[in-house]
């Protein structure tokens, strides 16, 4: 079963960290990615640029209107994701619980099942 782990955190939080803290965080991310690669659970993932680089597109009247800035006006912003294929929802949540943003209280992870193409007739 595939799960997408959506990482939400406060933009710019890194600026307030010491160099050692940053190194620890990047090291922890490397460690997790290595482990998920070795176990054959990692499907993919991407980090996103700072929300200030976002453009939001919506319908205004009869045409698409493009504005600068993110869609949600919230303190936490969507910062990136990883997709894993694992045994159980518990395992997916366990991976999320180990992510440094969660461990250090810097952000939250949402764990969402990915829809599959199969199905059982009922």
């Amino acid at each position: 079963m595939k799960y997408m782990l959506l990482i939400w955190n406060r933009p710019g939080f890194v600026e307030a960290l010491t160099e050692q803290e940053r190194n620890e965080i990047f090291g922890a991310v490397d460690e997790i990615m290595k482990e998920l690669t070795a176990s054959g659970e990692l499907v993919g993932g991407q980090a996103l640029a700072d929300p200030s680089q976002t453009r939001t597109v919506r319908l205004a009247g009869d045409r698409a209107e493009i504005t600068d800035g993110p869609f949600l006006e919230s303190k936490e912003q969507f910062a990136g994701y990883l997709t894993v294929d694992c045994d159980s929802p518990e395992r997916a949540a366990e991976i999320a619980a180990g992510w440094p943003d969660v461990r250090r209280g810097l952000g939250v992870l949402e764990v969402r099942p990915v829809m599959g193409d199969g199905g059982t007739e009922m």
């Binding site: 829809m115 599959g116 193409d117 199905g119 009922m122």
Partner: peptide, 8 residues
């Protein structure tokens, strides 16, 4: 979590 089941 199945697209086909959801449609049905």
């Amino acid at each position: 979590t199945s697209v086909a089941e959801r449609r049905y």
